[in-house]
Simulated scan of single mutants.
Amino acid sequence: MRIAVYPGSFDPITNGHLDIIERALKVFDKVIVAILINPTKKGLFSAEERVELIKKVTKDLDNVEVESFEGLLVDFLEKKETNIIIKGLRAVSDFEYEFQMALMNNKLNSNVETVFMMTSAEYSFLSSSSVKQVAFFDGSVEGLIPSMIIGDLKEKVRKVKEAEQDGSK
Rank of each mutant, 00 (worst) to 15 (best):
V5N: 12
L72H: 08
S128D: 08
G16T: 11
K26V: 02
I35V: 12
E98F: 04
V66P: 07
L36V: 11
I86H: 06
R50M: 07
E48G: 06
L108W: 10
L144E: 08
K80E: 13
G88K: 09
L77N: 01
R90N: 09
N83L: 03
D94M: 06
E162S: 14
S128G: 12
K169E: 15
D62T: 02
L36E: 06
E98A: 06
G88A: 05
N105R: 06
E22G: 00
N106Q: 13
K79V: 03
I21S: 08
E113Q: 09
S140L: 14
I85F: 04
V51Y: 04
F99V: 13
K55F: 00
G16D: 13
A24S: 15
F76T: 04
N38R: 10
E122L: 09
K59S: 15
S124K: 15
T40L: 08
T58R: 02
V92Y: 12
K154P: 04
S130C: 06
E22D: 02
L89A: 05
M104W: 03
V5P: 11
E78V: 04
F69N: 02
A102R: 01
M148H: 09
M101S: 07
F69Q: 01
L61S: 01
S46Q: 06
G43Y: 13
V27F: 11
P7F: 00
E162P: 03
S68K: 14
G8E: 08
D152N: 15
K80F: 04
N63H: 13
E52F: 01
S110L: 01
M118D: 07
R2F: 04
M104F: 11
L18R: 13
V5E: 11
L61E: 01
V115M: 10
V131N: 13
S130P: 00
F99K: 06
K41C: 00
D19M: 01
L53T: 11
S110V: 01
M148Q: 15
F116C: 03
T40F: 10
Y97V: 14
V92P: 03
M117H: 04
D138Y: 11
K56G: 03
I13A: 05
M1H: 07
D152H: 14
P12V: 09
F99H: 07
I149L: 09
K161V: 05
K132R: 15
F69Y: 15
E81W: 02
